[in-house]
């Protein structure tokens, strides 16, 4: 078991490990600016090309050129993560404070949903790496959203159409208290 669990690289001599961790912000900063994002889409755009791309990326030379940032996926710089968190926190404060204003019958709901969607967009784009990820994953995610909209819109439209029947039933069956 011990043998199997031995990692290929992560278990480093303690001294080295420590030295990098005490200055985590420095290494990443440098790291973030280094990769050329232009390389990313060309390799990751088309899922169909995976096998071929794999074969190529195994080659150290090619790999060096293509995977400026650690081979398998994009590495997000720390400043960006912190910035996204800052934005998310600010939007949370905004959405709470907006509730104290009256923006009309549906206004508050719309504003709250718009803010929530912006927040969700930030999380999906940056924390979930969709900005750099394969486009197919973006398509998948949008498909999910599309089908949710389809499901909700048809159900709700129909419910709106037959609501008057339910109202008739409710009014007929509710005991009129105090009459």
């Amino acid at each position: 078991m011990a043998n199997d669990d031995t990692p290929q690289n992560a278990e480093q001599p303690k001294s080295m490990q420590g030295s990098s961790e005490e200055t985590p912000t420095i290494a990443p900063e440098d790291d973030a600016t280094a990769p050329n994002p232009a390389f990313e889409p060309t390799e990751q755009d088309e899922p169909e090309q995976d096998e071929q791309a794999d074969a190529v990326s195994e080659d150290p030379q090619q790999g060096h050129e293509k995977h400026e940032d650690h081979g398998l996926a994009h590495t997000m710089p720390i400043w960006m993560m912190l910035a996204v968190l800052g934005a998310l926190m600010a939007l949370t404060i905004l959405t709470v404070s907006v509730t104290s204003f009256d923006l009309g019958s549906e206004g508050n709901l719309v504003v709250a949903m718009v803010i929530a969607t912006i927040k969700a967009g930030l999380v999906v784009t940056f924390f979930m790496h969709l900005f750099w990820d394969k486009k197919f994953h973006l398509i998948l995610f949008l498909t999910a959203v599309l089908f949710v909209i389809l499901f909700l819109s048809m159900s709700i439209t129909d419910r709106g159409e037959y609501q008057h029947n339910i109202d008739l039933y409710t009014n007929a069956t509710t005991p009129a208290v105090g009459k």
Binding site: N3, T6, P7, Q8, N9, E11, Q12, P13, M16, Q17, S19, S20, T23, I26, A27, D30, D31, A34, E58, P60, Q61, G63, H64, H67, E68, H70, G71
Partner: peptide, 25 residues
């Protein structure tokens, strides 16, 4: 197993990971 571990993997402060070492590993 431990002999095969390449110390070059661990990024030193302010130093990007050399990609070829990853593959070598």
């Amino acid at each position: 197993m431990s002999e095969s571990i390449s110390p070059a993997i661990e990024p030193k402060p302010g130093h990007r990971v050399p990609a070829p070492a990853v593959h070598e590993d």
